[in-house]
């Protein structure tokens, strides 16, 4: 294949990666931005989303005999909802009781990480399992054919990111989240139930990770250890973009996702990760607040 078609293929792969990463990292960024909680268990919510997608999809197909497309739709609706419910329980049982103290919640979310991971191992098992894509249409370009589902993943992620933007900037719930993010004490003094906002944001962040996982699981298989990579990449994205900056998160996800996709195709996935972590190190040294984060006072 010539260079330019090869670059186009690599860019498309990068765009899929960037789209899924943007959704996942946005959840992490929201949780940190509003709650000041570094959620180390975020990758496990991603994994839970994928595992539950397999379960819902399998049950729908085998027990009710519905088509793969409908089974995927069921998984896409139910898996994020169940993951959000698990996050809500974790918030009420653990984070709220720790009064959302930043240091204590880091340790607590490490605990949540292992609990979810081991529960997945116990009930789901060690095997990687595929979810059937809702459709298998291939888009025929002049140089190569490309998976229609992967293009759907990009479009769906962009649509979901647009919905998140709308929620945050145009709805009352978004206004309460933004006010709480900026000054929780004053927010409380004006009637905002901060504890409920925190619970909602934690569940919403987990839901975004689960949505990303459901989208990607027909491409990558569901596995109980699959949460580590998205967690690492999400941290890289959030640090580069600036902790708590949603705009920075989206731009950094595009940067990391595209470079990861392109470098993986032309060279190797390992080199892509090396470059991403090097970039993080440079950002931490030269611009610790991230590319779009506020400079510490």
């Amino acid at each position: 294949m010539d260079f330019w078609p090869y670059l186009l293929l690599a860019s498309l792969e990068g765009a899929v990666m960037a789209a899924v990463l943007a959704l996942t990292a946005l959840g992490l960024s929201l949780v940190f931005g509003v709650m000041r909680v570094v959620n180390v268990a975020h990758g496990e919510f991603f994994m839970l989303g994928a595992v539950l997608a397999w379960w819902f999809s399998s049950v729908s197909t085998q027990w009710f005999g519905i088509s793969p497309a409908l089974a995927f739709t069921v998984a896409f609706i139910m898996s994020p909802l169940v993951t959000a419910a698990v996050a809500l329980v974790a918030d009420r049982l653990v984070l709220k009781r720790l009064n959302y103290q930043p240091e204590a919640t880091i340790v607590a979310t490490i605990g949540i990480l292992y609990i979810i991971q081991q529960l997945a191992l116990t009930f789901y098992g060690p095997d990687a399992r595929p979810v059937v894509a809702p459709f298998s249409y291939r888009v025929q370009l002049p140089w190569f054919g490309y998976s229609g589902y992967k293009l759907f993943v990009i479009a769906a992620a962009v649509f979901l990111l647009g919905l998140v933007w709308f929620l945050l900037s145009r709805t009352r719930a978004g206004l309460l989240m933004r006010a709480t993010q900026q000054d929780y004490e004053t927010a409380q003094a004006f009637g905002i139930p901060v504890s409920r906002v925190y619970a909602g944001v934690f569940a919403f962040g987990a839901m975004l990770a689960a949505m990303a996982a459901v989208l990607i699981v027909p491409i990558q298989q569901a596995h109980y250890l699959m949460g580590l990579d998205p967690l690492l990449l999400s941290f890289i994205v959030v640090i580069i973009g600036g902790l708590g900056s949603l705009r920075g998160t989206l731009i950094a996800a595009l940067l990391i996702g595209m470079s990861d996709g392109i470098i993986s195709v032309f060279f190797s996935p390992t080199l892509a990760k090396i470059l991403a972590t090097t970039l993080v190190a440079m950002v931490l040294v030269f611009r610790p607040q991230g590319l779009f984060g506020d400079r510490p006072q």
Partner: peptide, 21 residues
């Protein structure tokens, strides 16, 4: 003052309205 600095003036006033439901 403790305003919400990244919110607009209209949004700050809306937060005030929120308390009364």
């Amino acid at each position: 003052r403790r305003l919400f600095p990244q919110l607009t003036v209209a949004e700050n006033l809306k937060i005030g309205d929120y308390a009364r439901h």
